[in-house]
Simulated assay, not measured.
Amino acid sequence: MLPLAAGLLGLALGPWLARATVRLAARDRAAVPGRVRVALTAAVTGPLLAGAAALTGARPLLAGVLWAAAAAVVLAGVDLAVHRLPDVVTLPALAVLAAAVTADALTDGTGRRALTGLLLGAAAFAVGVGLRLLAPAGLGFGDVKLLAPLGLLLGWWGGGQLVLTGVLLGLLAGALVSLVLLATRRAGWRTAVPFGPPLLVGAAAALVLAGPL
């Protein structure tokens, strides 16, 4: 019943998330999403939240994972549209996830996992900052900040190995997308490709591989 309830919640949130996406992308509070975007957003969010509930189960961590999953939908939509990952979405997702991890530690005795996740989230952010300084054109600062919640969640779930797996799968997804765009002549070698969606896909794939599915 929990995955079903989470899936229905995702479907209900679809119109609101679609509206948030277009308004953040356009920086216009009056922007209204089209029917196709609303339908696609609901179609993605419903199964995503259902899968998150099936993977996490009924525990305090679930609230943070559901929030992060809904935030991921908005972040991916904005990044695909305007190559930007808004702090107003990323930072609250990090805060809610950190609070959920802390609550889970207090109620379910997962203190060591919580500490591991928090440390790896900070480490992922630090590595991202270093990469940003070394190659500013290769990684946006929005991508760097996104590494913090992804590192926290993946670190809680499977330690450093799962963080590396998620990042590597994200890099692979980004490379595949770039190759497809090049092959179809929709992009050139110097065309900027949004890196947020591949990172999110890589993290989701790593969680599925590490979970009961």
Rank of each mutant, 00 (worst) to 15 (best):
39 A>I: 07
189 W>L: 09
107 T>K: 00
16 W>L: 12
176 L>H: 03
70 A>W: 15
123 A>E: 06
202 G>F: 01
199 L>E: 05
85 L>A: 12
47 P>S: 11
187 A>G: 07
30 A>F: 10
17 L>F: 06
85 L>K: 03
86 P>N: 13
98 A>G: 04
142 G>Q: 05
184 T>I: 03
62 L>Y: 11
26 A>D: 13
153 L>F: 06
144 V>T: 06
95 A>H: 04
212 P>M: 14
3 P>M: 13
208 V>C: 12
66 L>M: 14
191 T>G: 01
6 A>L: 13
30 A>E: 15
168 L>R: 07
154 L>F: 03
175 A>K: 02
152 L>A: 03
34 G>L: 04
108 D>T: 03
204 A>V: 04
68 A>T: 11
73 V>K: 14
25 A>Q: 08
64 G>V: 11
92 P>D: 05
58 A>R: 15
134 L>M: 06
67 W>D: 13
35 R>D: 06
24 L>F: 10
165 T>V: 13
68 A>H: 11
77 G>L: 11
104 D>K: 00
82 V>I: 15
162 L>N: 08
198 P>V: 09
131 L>M: 10
34 G>M: 07
79 D>K: 06
87 D>E: 10
186 R>V: 01
99 A>H: 01
102 T>N: 01
27 R>K: 13
6 A>N: 12
40 L>N: 11
61 L>R: 09
200 L>P: 10
117 G>S: 06
101 V>E: 04
45 T>N: 12
53 A>N: 15
182 L>C: 04
161 Q>E: 10
89 V>P: 02
97 L>F: 04
80 L>Q: 14
22 V>G: 10
23 R>P: 13
196 G>L: 08
39 A>C: 12
179 L>C: 05
14 G>W: 09
48 L>S: 15
73 V>H: 14
18 A>K: 14
90 T>Y: 07
112 R>L: 12
50 A>L: 14
65 V>E: 13
208 V>W: 14
153 L>Y: 01
188 G>D: 04
38 V>H: 09
47 P>Y: 05
125 F>N: 04
91 L>I: 09
153 L>T: 02
135 A>C: 03
128 G>I: 08
203 A>V: 02
18 A>T: 11
105 A>D: 03
147 L>V: 02
205 A>K: 04
94 L>F: 00
157 W>K: 10
37 R>H: 09
53 A>S: 12
69 A>V: 15
63 A>P: 08
